[in-house]
């Protein structure tokens, strides 16, 4: 592989990885707190992208559309927790899991009915003023890298800095960490557990929407099932890094993105197996290190 192609793949992998990581963090936060795999996560991302898309069609400038998408998804995540998961807090975990799968189908079907099944082009959000985002490329070491790739990577990094600040430096983050270790005790500390769980869903959904919107800018195909595959990949990334661990989700996301891109780069004939490759990683990690790279050893208490 020449230096230029290597760079090209590296940046692509980092961008992809960042997007997986953005989604994976949402899975891992909810799992850390409720021990629930929120299978509707990818679909919340899809809804966020649609919100941004329609806001833009309605005439909102790009920055506002992005914010509408992010906050719309945050509210949707909060709402889904209230309506679908909160009544099942004390139910067996499998009930909540099945509800999550149902919620995923529900969101996809709603999107088909409301937005239509025909894919739409997200390029509609760009106009004369910001079209350069799509076209401009930089020449680095002989590789032509779209500026958008850098912007996506930069924003992803900023979002992660914000996330770590929230989780490790603010009171609400402290409450989130407290809840993930012991819910009843946390409520006895005077913390409104339902509110903090709602906040966690909102935060995870907002990050998913941010990731989804950037994804749609790079691959401008918006359709009701667009959240399915990224959602599954992000789940794999979360398991790879150790589900329940936020740094793990970030590491897992980047690792999965890079692995996927370089697999295709090194074996172009295997390009069609890219998705299968991700699932093979899942199987392997579950077989040899089910706690993930940074996950805590889960001890069964007796």
């Amino acid at each position: 592989m020449s230096g230029a192609t290597f760079l090209q793949n590296l940046f692509n992998g980092l961008m992809f990885g960042g997007l997986y990581a953005l989604l994976a963090v949402g899975y891992t936060m909810v799992y850390g707190i409720l021990r629930l795999i929120n299978f509707a996560h990818g679909d919340i991302m899809m809804m966020g992208v649609y919100f941004a898309f329609y806001a833009s069609l309605a005439g909102a400038p790009l920055w506002l559309s992005v914010l509408i998408g992010i906050f719309g998804a945050a509210f949707l995540g909060f709402l889904i927790d209230r309506v679908a998961y909160k009544p099942l807090r004390n139910a067996p975990r499998i009930s909540a899991l099945i509800t999550a799968i149902g919620m995923s189908f529900f969101l996809e079907s709603i999107a088909v009915v409301v937005f239509g099944a025909v894919p739409k082009s997200f390029t509609a959000v760009f106009n004369e003023n910001n079209k350069w985002l799509l076209d401009k490329t930089w020449n680095i070491g002989g590789a032509r890298i779209p500026v958008l790739t850098f912007i996506v990577f930069l924003i992803t990094a900023l979002i992660f800095m914000l996330l770590f600040w929230i989780v490790y430096r603010t009171k609400i983050g402290m409450a989130m960490r407290a809840i993930s270790s012991d819910i009843p005790t946390t409520s006895l500390m005077g913390i409104n557990v339902d509110m903090v769980i709602g906040f966690t869903f909102a935060l995870g959904s907002a990050m998913a929407a941010a990731g989804g919107i950037m994804w749609a800018m790079r691959y401008p195909n918006v359709f009701p099932y667009m959240g399915f595959m990224p959602g599954l990949k992000a789940f794999i990334a979360a398991v790879l890094g150790g589900i329940g661990s936020i740094p793990g989700a970030v590491v897992g996301g980047f690792l999965l993105g890079l692995l996927e891109i370089f697999l295709v780069a090194l074996m172009p004939s295997a390009a069609g197996y890219r998705d299968a490759f991700a699932f093979i990683i899942l199987i392997v990690i579950l077989l040899i290190k089910p706690d993930g790279l940074l996950g805590k050893k889960s001890v069964v208490k007796v």
Partner: peptide, 8 residues
């Protein structure tokens, strides 16, 4: 500090 949420 976790137990000081009452201050909010």
């Amino acid at each position: 500090i976790v137990a000081q949420h009452h201050m909010l």
